[in-house]
Amino acid sequence: MHTISDEQLSAFIDKALPDSEMHHINNLLAESAELRERLHKLQQADEMARQFFASQDDIPLPAGLLEQIQAHRPEAEVVQFQPRVRWPWAIAASVVLSVGLVWQLLSPAAYTATDRALLSMSSGSVKIMNAEERLEITRSELNSAGQFCRYFIVHTPARSEESSACWQGEQWLYHPPGSSRQYQPAGASEQPAQSLSADEEERWLRNLSQQTQAD
């Protein structure tokens, strides 16, 4: 008689026992035909499982699945968000955004994806920019100089930070993260900024759209 359980034999099949126990069971197997038969049956169970799953490999994948994956595009998603709702993981500023803003300030000729988003999306919308960045537009206002300004948050997995941009000379003039709430154009009067309603914002966006398309 031996006292080897099915659990031990099962682990023996997977070579998941300590060396000493593997050696011990090997010795018992050499002596016991009954134990060898038990082991053989457990091994046949594995063979049955392999047959079961291998049978599926001969069946074609569901129609359209491969095409669906190949046709997927990362920038295809624009999600409508409730205003002032932040991503749970969003905590601070985006270094990536800062680099991007400097680049945009230096090369204003072509409209970037951020430019286009600010020209077209209403406040409360979120645009997925790439794998790491989401752009959430929070509000619009006219600053003390009467310029149309938009406030937005760039969310990355590590942080979120609000920035702003004002439309000036047929381009967005971006203000670095942290300066958006204090921004005043040179020579500005003390006239307070004016928040825009959804309708007012829509009119501004429509006008800017016509203006940029005309250009």
Binding site: D6, A11, A45
Partner: peptide
């Protein structure tokens, strides 16, 4: 995982 594997093999082997 160990105990589940043993029972799975045990049950299938009974059907053989």
């Amino acid at each position: 995982i160990m105990s589940r594997l043993a029972r799975a093999r045990q049950q299938l082997s009974l059907a053989l």
